[in-house]
Amino acid sequence: MSSTFAGEIRAGCSRRVRCAAANLLGWVFVGLAVFPAASRSHAQQAPEAINPPPTAKDWTELAKLPDWSGIWFPDLADQRRQVAGNPPPWTEAAAAQVRELVQQERAGHPKLIFSGCLPESMPAWMLVSHNAMEILFTPGRVTLLGESDSNRLRRIYTDGRKHPEDPDLTFHGHSIAHWEGDVLVVDTVGIRPQTFIAVSEAVGLPNNGDLHVVERIHLAGPNTLHDELEITAPHLLTRPWKTTRIFYRQRQRKFDIVEGICLEASFTEAKDKYGNAILVPVPHDEEGIKITPSPK
């Protein structure tokens, strides 16, 4: 409407000077009219992303997914077999460090690679965990919840989003996934360079950045879940490392995940001067050994 008005101003001129002025005025109107439209058009191209409320159909669709309920406990013997038979393709420099760590562990001085109660993180959680996890499906999301590490958590988006262009680096990275039949294909980037590619709780090296993990997670039997990982760590491995981890379903309630606050044992129960129940830090020696008072 505004540009039509500008056109009328231009069409109504009869002398060159007046026409020039009218034209100028007309273009000002065009500009005024177009600029907000351009802003609106820009907004339409990149609307602010929202998570829409799930519909009844979204919830119904979840019932068509494979049944991954229950508690999944890792096959610890197979973790060791995998590491022995299919070790990470370490670079030469990394292999030398790994040999040193193995010797340290054998000598009884294991390096505490998961010290300080930081999470085992990606991908070490999937590779070497001794602890249970559960998997929740909700519309647009698969969530992995693990025991220990102050309770482990991976949020895997299945709502079609892409990775952020410049993700904040985190301990578990940014995960997106899609279903290929009954296989959940998970793509994870944005993992901190300090997280370990580990073969045990004492042997592992920081990934050193640009880590990319692709997982194909699927049932391999009624109560067996396989996580087929392909780990690309260009600063640590000579080629992408393909390895599989196995988890077995447990339905007994004694396997239900319990709270696992890692720093819990670093504190002890006490009372303050008002009689309030409080937690106070316990001292540790230089090796991280808790110092407890001897009996009276």
């Binding site: 562990e105 054998r106 009884g108 294991p110 010290s115 300080g116 220990s148 808790k290 407890t292 001897s294």
Partner: peptide, 22 residues
């Protein structure tokens, strides 16, 4: 000396390798 200090060492940490034990 240990009694005088009133301290003994208890191994405890984040989850760790048990290789410190023989």
């Amino acid at each position: 000396v240990v009694l005088a200090l009133g301290l003994v060492a208890a191994p405890i940490f984040a989850h760790h390798s048990a290789a410190m034990y023989d």
